[in-house]
């Protein structure tokens, strides 16, 4: 399964990079969303996959009994998801305003955004 997951994450990353390079801001946002999913999955897999119980401690115990999933990457991903959402929402609003100001979401058509060197 690890191998398949690695391949899936690679596929997601490839698609998201292609979308982000496309020069269309909408596709960029879609790519960004996909990329954050891919990265979260990658961190998750790097913490090792196991069909173990969630990392909880039973009432009255001092430590988890039996095998539990790795809690550390879960904590990292949990916040990463929320931050990723914040970033995505901000980007979306940015693009939204960009469209309001320039009337297009194609990068090639936005000429006076930054003078070309």
């Amino acid at each position: 399964m690890e191998l398949i997951m690695a391949a899936l994450i690679g596929l997601m990353a490839a698609v998201s990079v292609y979308l982000m390079l496309a020069g269309n801001m909408l596709r960029f946002i879609v790519g960004l969303s996909l990329l954050s999913n891919a990265v979260n999955l990658a961190i998750f897999e790097a913490g090792r996959l196991s069909f173990a119980a969630p990392p909880f401690i039973a009432e009255g115990e001092k430590a988890p009994t039996g095998d539990v999933a790795n809690a550390l990457p879960q904590a990292l991903i949990l916040t990463a998801i929320v931050i990723g959402f914040g970033l995505l929402a901000f980007t979306l609003v940015l693009v939204y305003r960009l469209y309001g100001a320039f009337g297009t979401v194609e990068i090639d058509e936005i000429e006076n955004a930054e003078p070309r060197g």
Partner: peptide, 19 residues
């Protein structure tokens, strides 16, 4: 497409190395 594919392969490779 080429750059995307390269990134994808790199990500898969890196992840496999980690595993």
């Amino acid at each position: 497409g080429a750059i995307g594919a390269a990134v994808g392969v790199a990500v898969t490779g890196a992840l496999m190395a980690v595993m």
